[in-house]
Write a protein that binds this DNA or RNA. Structure first.
Lengths: 231, 231
DNA sequence: AGGCGAATACTCGATTTCGAGTAATCGGGA
DNA sequence: TCCCGATTACTCGAAATCGAGTATTCGCCT
């Protein structure tokens, strides 16, 4: 997949908006907000204008007129070109048909879980779970309101997907917290012990790994087999 | 939550690595790769060096020595400072305890689903599902290999989380494809009809919304109630 | 009538991000 | 031994990103 000339997701939304009808950038931003697309695609004024001019430079859109109302700033209206339409279709094909790795904040945090004591982690996970629960409730309420308004689900599938992700995250946070608390997550006993030793002896956590036998004894035999580059 | 001075997730990983022991940037990058953390946190050389120097500028890390081996480039070894340790803990607390919205590629694509004909979307979703299935199988295999190596699950929870997300995405893609195919997703009948009309009459899709009654008749009464700013 | 907060429409430049490029050394095979 | 590809370690400048700031006008309330 050759890299896109203009890669920002907002550029995709701009092409999508302009494929309906010509608009000026600010109008695009209002429409995205009115339709709630700004929840799915990060909208930022700075990026919006630079992205539009990048699309212009590459011939995906073109300025069709510049209006002036009294002393107000000019509004430059852009229209999508044929090559812009092609780019949009290619991009949408890719977005739907080809999974691309997204980096999530939680994943980054989980990668350093052992840096905190188990009980601290359990607390934090439970806090997260509570907030998630609330966010999920709000999303569900929004969906019900849309149902009442008779707007067909087709127009908010992206929000249903968000809901699935949030639900999966909640389930994971809950399960992980429970497993740590019950010492069911393999390695937790060792983790707990390590933090106790550090607290008792007042040593630096790094010390533990320099002479594991001394601190942990034979109980955690697997430590010997762990390749040195894996923590 | 006041904005972080250095916000890149890679900076978080740098602080996490240096809280184990002093290292030079390239060594950090190798360790992150060896431990597979680069799958959870995007690693890029350009960013690595600029992020380290930003951390240095703000006093979170400091250069402790500069080694030179023959003619090879200098290696500047950095150590974490007390304020860096505090920043790392605060950051980890936030990453685990507070859900932050991540933007996913698929969500952006779903927001423009009606731009393609229903059958095209079903095809793409099924293609995605196949790729996802494969990725999931690979992840599961990796986890089994880690089990065999006796590395406790504690050290790869982030990968288990990834697996949950991928699984949720697969389930969603499959269900959505099925619902569209069976006309169970509300709005699909209208969507299908719209694409047929466009194909038959050779008109621009935007036309449909200018005079819906003319094209769709009374069958899709809800169209009248939809606020004009919502597509 | 006129005051003021919200909405309109965009600009600007300081950071950040990126990844290809460079240049040296190591190590294993012919 | 000497060649070559992999590894080590980092640099550089172009491009993207951001969000606070500006200036005007609308419209509602008193």
């Amino acid at each position: 997949m050759a890299k896109r000339k203009v890669g920002n997701a907002l550029a995709f939304a701009v092409l999508g908006s302009l494929s309906e009808r010509p608009m000026h950038p600010y109008e695009i931003s209002t429409m995205l907000k009115a339709r709630g697309k700004d929840v799915s695609i990060k909208l930022n004024y700075g990026s919006l204008y630079s992205v539009v001019s990048a699309l212009d430079k590459h011939g995906y859109v073109e300025a069709v007129e510049t209006l002036r109302d009294g002393n107000r700033p000019e509004r430059t209206v852009y229209a999508i070109t044929d090559s812009g339409r092609a780019e949009f279709e290619d991009w949408l094909t890719e977005l739907i048909g080809t999974p691309e790795k997204d980096f999530s904040q939680l994943e980054a945090g989980l990668a350093y879980l052992p840096a905190f004591a188990p009980d601290r982690v359990v607390e934090l996970l439970e806090k997260r779970a509570k907030v998630l629960e609330q966010q999920i409730a709000e999303l569900v309420a929004t969906h019900e309101a849309l149902q009442v308004q008779q707007l067909p689900r087709l127009f908010w599938v992206e929000s249903e997907f968000r809901l699935e992700l949030l639900t999966a995250e909640l389930k994971f946070a809950r399960r992980l917290a429970a497993e740590i608390q019950a010492d069911e997550l393999e390695g937790t006993a060792f983790w707990r012990k390590g933090f106790e030793i550090v607290a008792e002896r007042g040593i630096n956590p790094g010390e533990l790994f320099k002479d594991p036998l001394k601190y942990f004894g034979e109980e955690f035999a697997w430590l010997q087999h762990v390749p040195p580059e894996a923590k």
